[in-house]
Design a protein around this nucleic acid. Structure first.
Length: 623
DNA sequence: TAACTCGGACTTTCAAGAGT
DNA sequence: CTCTTGAAAGTCCGAGTTAT
């Protein structure tokens, strides 16, 4: 088994593999002698086009068929046949042997979803919804359904990242695109605005020509494939990305960090939280080992190319932000990188990065100094995002941060308020000068609101116990219901409403970072807890709109992220439980003392309205 | 009638249990 | 340790369907 297996022959996709056509003579099992019984001209691997058409492939690159059909690239992917890791649930029935139940990684499914760790959740969504059904075509997808020949793939994309031209409308090639190409485009269209660390597409593809960043390309391809209907290629892409990134030959450098961060974000959103944490801890180790957190790294490894230097600064800071977000939303890790003293320059604005006009970087000390000097300078959106996640780090470092005392909470609240107050006017919303969404500010605000909820919830009076089953993102924290409407309650309600407002930006919801899923869940818990309380009964119209927005958004996100599917199923379960409890309460006549007949009817109608909307919007999720 | 689609026969590769 | 078995993942023949 030493030579000839497709997995060994092909280290990548497309351009990664062109000069190593597979053997056209099959290798017999074991001894290496040619088995005379096997068909003499079966190739070791057929290209994707031939495979899809069930046609004989000559195994060349490009193969004869692709050459004559002039269909552009002839793509080979590594075989998925064979070893897929140790089989789980081995031998539940000793009398019968069991097939491998492993599936393609993103859809590993089963009720062992790590997002549900620590919970015995009756309402946990069973993985019935085929989140990664290859047949799924996302309504907002720029790409077409999977067709091997890529027919009808002429599409218009609006993203500054797809080529070097800022804001340009990029028309896809007139040549039909291959699946890997579409995945890379989907990566830049959907994923990249939320985590813009790698080089813009044009520069990246140039860099990729020498085959030294195949692991990074593979990671991008896999995550891109989550957003489109990539067909059976998706599982292969994942395998490829993992194999190349964890290969012994891969140098430990900034590109590897970029690849691993991309993979871990993808896994985290695909309900592979534990695996994502492992990769996070590996990538943190590598980042520290290679000195990515130092100011000198960018100049030492940037080859005097300003854009590459900027890319390295972004790589550190995006890893930093992701580490913080993972810690903040799941509360299983502790934001390790927060304690690293990093002096990396702050990233510039997105349009500067894409245009290549990279200014001299500013530094965190400049940012901190402004607080004392009293002069408000304008920093990049990415810098405000970093500042926002640092506040989360400070909050997490509070002693006894599960149930902090009032004084500590006030200290952090002033940090959060200061962050908001010192934003320059252009950064107070999430739109840039051209009225397009500024995803960096979007995340910055998102983190700020999420911090506010996490910080104030323990001291608020909203009893979160009906939402105890919403554990899709983090374990439930019990909060005692108080008797008075206090300031903390007001803070979390405001934050939850602000988060719901963020749903309304006119961009595909799936182009936000997937961590938005967890923040939406936080917001939903607050809304639902509030709904359970009778003294908000006159607010119900607004509340209904907000719950509706959150659920609609979670529903849309479910099309890409399995974690969102779980979250929406759980939110629905909680809504049903609260509704049942409310009905039980209302059946007691003393409940309605002080209400007019009209108020009673309209309140009950509003409740029913909320429930029926939740029901219809989440038809595919578990109760 | 050429081109295309796809059911399904057959092969390869591995995990896991059985046998030595 | 090797052998056997089971199942997934693969190749591609060739019958049936569709397009020209």
């Amino acid at each position: 088994m030493s030579n000839g297996s497709p997995t060994e022959l092909f280290n990548g996709l497309g351009s990664d593999i062109p000069n190593q056509p597979p053997h056209s003579t099959p290798v017999s099992s074991g001894s290496g002698a040619v088995d005379s019984r096997t068909p003499p001209n079966t190739v070791q691997a057929a290209c994707l086009a031939c495979r899809a058409k069930h046609l004989k492939c000559d195994g060349k690159n490009p193969c004869g068929r692709c050459q004559t059909s002039d269909s552009g690239e002839c793509v080979y992917v590594a075989s998925r046949r064979g070893y897929k890791g140790p089989r789980r649930n081995a031998a539940p029935n000793p009398n019968k042997r069991h097939a491998s139940d492993s599936e393609s990684p993103p859809s590993a499914g089963g009720d062992s979803c790590p997002m549900l760790l620590g919970a015995t959740v009756s309402s946990a969504a069973p993985p019935s919804l085929p989140t990664f059904n290859p047949g799924l075509v996302l309504p907002e997808s720029p790409a077409t359904p999977y067709t091997p020949s890529g027919i009808n793939s002429l599409q218009l994309y609006r993203t500054p990242y797809l080529n070097g031209t800022n804001g340009a409308l990029v028309e896809a090639n007139s040549r039909p695109q291959t699946v890997p190409e579409r995945c890379i485009d989907a990566f830049y269209y959907y994923f990249y605005p939320g985590h813009p660390a790698v080089l813009p597409k044009e520069q990246l593809l140039k860099t990729a020509k020498d085959g030294k960043i195949d692991h990074l390309l593979a990671a991008m391809r896999w995550v891109g494939s989550l957003y489109i209907d990539a067909g059976p290629a998706r599982a292969t892409f994942f395998e490829e990305a993992m194999r190349l990134s964890y290969s012994r030959d891969v140098p430990k450098d900034g590109y590897l960090v970029q690849a691993m961060v991309i993979i871990l974000i993808g896994l985290d959103g695909s309900c592979q939280q534990e695996k994502a944490r492992e990769i996070l801890s590996d990538v943190e180790r590598i980042a520290i080992e290679i000195g990515l957190y130092t100011r000198a790294f960018a100049t030492n490894h940037g080859g005097a190319i300003p854009r590459l230097e900027e890319s390295w600064r972004r790589t550190w800071w995006d890893l930093f932000v992701v580490d913080g977000m993972v810690a903040g939303v799941h509360r299983q890790t502790n934001f390790l990188l927060f304690d690293i003293v990093a002096d990396v320059g702050l990233p510039c604005e997105e349009h500067e990065y894409t245009s290549g006009m990279i200014p001299r970087p500013m530094f965190l000390e400049d940012f901190d100094d402004q607080l004392f000097s009293g002069i408000d300078r304008e920093f990049s959106s990415f810098a405000y995002r970093i500042a926002s996640i640092r506040n989360l780090g400070r909050m997490m470092r509070l002693p006894n941060s599960g149930f902090p005392n009032e004084e500590n909470v006030n200290r952090i609240e002033s940090l959060l308020s200061n962050w908001r107050m010192h934003l320059p006017p252009s950064k107070r919303d999430c739109l840039n000068k051209d009225c397009q969404l500024d995803e960096m500010m979007f995340q910055a605000h998102m983190i700020n609101h999420a911090c506010s909820i996490i910080l104030h919830q323990p001291l608020s009076q909203l009893d979160s116990s009906p939402a105890r089953e919403v554990t899709a993102c983090a374990p439930h924290r019990a909060v005692q219901s108080g008797d008075r409407f206090n300031l903390h309650t007001k803070h979390i309600i405001t934050a939850a409403c602000e988060i719901s407002k963020m749903v309304t930006y006119n961009v595909p919801i799936t182009s936000h970072t997937h961590f938005f899923t967890c923040v939406l869940t936080l917001s939903s818990i607050v809304h639902l807890s509030k709904w359970a309380l009778e003294y908000f009964i006159h607010d119900e119209d607004d509340l209904r709109q907000q719950i509706r927005l959150n659920i609609g958004a979670l529903n849309k996100l479910s099309g890409v992220w399995k974690a969102a599917n779980n979250a929406s199923g759980q939110v629905k379960g909680v809504a049903q439980e609260i509704y049942r409890a409310k009905r039980a309460q209302q059946s007691n006549p003393s409940f309605w003392v002080g209400f007019t007949q009209e108020e009673i009817i309209s309140s009950m109608a509003a409740d029913e309205g909320i429930m029926s909307e939740i029901d219809t919007m989440l038809t595919s999720s578990a109760p």
